[in-house]
Design a binder for these strands. Structure first.
Lengths: 133, 133, 133, 133
DNA sequence: GTGGTCTAGACCACC
DNA sequence: GTGGTCTAGACCACG
């Protein structure tokens, strides 16, 4: 996990995003234990409160669960809040992706390639991650 | 043009995004005149300064040019700032798109379809829209 | 004479600057006749009022004189308004020049060379200008 | 830092110029913390938004970076936008400097001296200032 | 009419 | 505390 203090996105949101992306990509599965917010804050060299806030919001959203005294875990059943809203959000991101790419002089085919690369990057590195756990 | 005051994204950024997307999709071309920031603010029912801020930043970024007393126009030569940074930004957006989609239960093939739809939506070739209906 | 409508500097000021620079460089001398504001506006493809405003202000500043019915001429005795203020303005411009150059990665010696070039550019083209008159 | 509300140059540009000049002269270095826009606005007795606008534009131009909740800092890697455009801008400023000086009755040698003084003033090596006294 | 600048003041998000 | 956004309204400069 890496965070960028200079990023426009707040640090706690960067943490949230990386955890949800890890779940989406299968790198984190239901029941997996997360680092304590204290451990993670040391590792990232940021304030513990910042990690805590990220975990709190992830819990509110249903992605993780806290077991007092035992730790924090990826939720057993992940949230599927609102299919329609999700679809619209994905569409918007797709439009933004294309606009960025076209302004950078790329064409549709190049975007498809980048997307395929990202797909492998997100999915394809499972095996070695298991050994880490 | 439509803005959503409740959106997480600031209003002035929503305006910036829509204008850059219109440029990316070819709906706005070099030399095209934009609405004055006052007109647009009336249309959107927001403060003129909010539109002006969007225009100011777009100008600093090189997308539009202003001529005092005459109006605001799409820049003659659009910016091609930093190819490397651009590629990385597009990659990040691609990763975010996939993460969003996978969390919503979609698969890679569905993302590709959504992307193709977005491509046509951005470019404005309405033929395929008919098939959707 | 060339003007740039996209420049931050108002058009009438661009005209003023170019005329005073021509005087400073010796390309225009006391008594030389200027184009009428109508002629100049045609040549520059701008509104006559814009040229008129530049001439008006130059007259107020004492650089040119209008003889009704005969035309506009470079003033017989050019203004030397306030030596102290002039010195300070020149100093400020010098500081700005250096800051621009240093931020662009140049060093002091390079600035001196550019200045020497500009000196020749401003002064050195008299002879051919005389033939134009 | 000093600003002059009566100056032709907008206040926010005066602030921008002074900060970029401080960077050019080495008085501000990468990573240095700037005053918060509120503090600086109190110091200069102007509206906070005016300082903020200066900071915003400097950030878009790449000179400074902001970290929400922590402050504003001189950028780690300063921008080196367009060498060609930079050279031309420096040349224009050099021409303007000479025109101003010649209209004030100075000669080339005097301009060179003023430039040398400005160089030392900008860099802040105070040795030669003693000799001036 | 256009854009450009500045103000005073509010509310929010982040650390 | 920091920066981020938005508002309402003023005045000026430009063409």
């Amino acid at each position: 996990m890496l965070i960028n203090p200079a990023d426009e996105l707040p640090i706690y949101r960067q943490i949230m995003r990386q955890i949800t992306e890890a779940i989406a990509g299968g790198k984190l599965k239901s029941g997996d234990k997360l680092l304590s917010h204290r451990e993670l804050s040391e590792q990232l060299v940021i304030a513990p409160l910042t990690v805590k806030k990220a975990y709190d919001e992830l819990e509110l959203l249903g992605f993780i669960e806290t077991a007092r005294g035992r730790g924090t875990f990826v939720a057993a059943k992940l949230p599927v809040p609102d299919p329609d809203a999700d679809l619209e959000r994905v569409r918007q991101t797709a439009r933004r992706l294309l606009a960025q790419a076209y302004l950078a002089g790329m064409n549709f085919e190049q975007v498809r390639e980048i997307l395929a690369d990202a797909h492998e990057h997100l999915i394809g590195t499972h095996k070695s991650e298991k050994e880490k756990a």
